[in-house]
């Protein structure tokens, strides 16, 4: 095993170009577990800790450019207003120690359906900025990023640099089911973001399909129902039947498996409950004008 220690982004790209099998390591919260338990022996480890720009974020007019290695703790502390869904998701990641090390780059790179950030990123809408020495930068829409079980749209010579996430224009929520009250891997997870500017709702579901997914039929149904009932303007409470239908469609979007963490049936059920509840929380927040929705969740 070789340990590559690039001092800059350019050096990191060069190393990845030279050694496309190199495994990037930043927070180490996935890679080191695999090494400690002898599940993986990469030929090269590519340490990204010294690439300082990966630790930075920039709040622009429309989007937040979030460096791949910005620790979840920093997202919780600094970006709660701009990225409320992701901030909530960050708070559910493992433990304080892990949140101090891990960032969205790791979740995206591993592309496990259980990664906590995915549902929030899907719901908020974002583009993943990746780069290679040979072809430069490209932006991958999040909807096209997850390509299979633990697979993503990255080319072997590419590294994830940052994520361009739309700033919240409405309330966002995030829920995750685990069988412990802290430090738990998702049995399943759900993210929702209201986008009043475009009068749309986006969702994200984790751990309930081979990849993180959106519940598109549910979104379309809800968008139409909200439009039809004039809800965006009149701010009325969403009709229970609409919420129920939305929840059922979300549940139906899930395509989970039975595993040691939970059954497929339970996952489908829980996605529906989380969808109904988080829709309730975000909509209540929207109609009462109580801000952008991260409150109430410690």
């Amino acid at each position: 095993m070789d340990f590559l220690r690039p001092a800059s982004w350019e050096e990191a790209l060069a190393a990845k170009a030279e050694h496309p099998t190199a495994v990037p390591i930043a927070g180490g919260t996935d890679v080191m577990v695999e090494i400690n338990f002898d599940h993986r022996r990469p030929e090269y480890l590519l340490d990204l800790n010294r690439v300082t720009e990966l630790q930075d974020w920039h709040v622009g007019a429309e989007t937040v450019q979030l460096g791949a290695s910005v620790p979840y703790t920093k997202i919780m502390e600094n970006l709660r207003a701009e990225l409320p869904g992701l901030a909530l998701a960050s708070h559910t990641v493992a433990s304080p120690q892990i949140r101090n090390r891990g960032g969205v780059g790791g979740n995206l790179g591993t592309a496990s359906p259980a990664g906590d950030a995915h549902p929030a990123l899907l719901a908020a809408d974002c583009e993943v900025e990746v780069e290679s020495q040979a072809r430069g930068t490209r932006l991958i829409p999040i909807d096209a990023f997850y390509t299979g079980v633990k697979r993503n749209a990255l080319e072997p010579d590419e590294l994830i640099k940052s994520v361009h996430i739309k700033k919240a224009d409405g309330p966002q929520q995030y829920s995750k089911v685990g069988t412990r009250n802290a430090m738990v891997i998702a049995v399943c997870a759900f993210g929702i973001a209201l986008h009043p500017e475009t009068r749309t709702v986006r969702t994200g579901i984790g751990s309930a399909a081979p990849t993180p997914i959106r519940a598109k039929a549910a979104e379309e149904f809800l968008n139409a129902a909200l439009e039809e009932g004039g809800f965006w303007d009149n701010g009325k409470i969403i009709t229970p039947s609409v919420a129920k239908q939305f929840a059922e469609l979300c549940s139906g979007a899930a395509n989970p498996i039975d595993d040691v963490r939970g059954t497929a049936n339970y996952r489908k059920h829980a996605v529906g409950i989380m969808a109904r509840r988080t829709l309730g929380w975000t909509w209540e927040s929207y109609r009462s004008g109580k801000g952008r929705g991260a409150e109430g969740a410690a």
Binding site: H91, S175, V177, N181, A182, W281, G296, A298
Partner: peptide, 20 residues
């Protein structure tokens, strides 16, 4: 009327604010 999720089932995973 908000909820401290740390005191609720699900804890930090933010699954309920008292519902159910």
């Amino acid at each position: 009327g908000d909820a401290d999720v740390r005191e609720l089932p699900g804890g930090l995973s933010n699954t309920t604010h008292g519902e159910g």
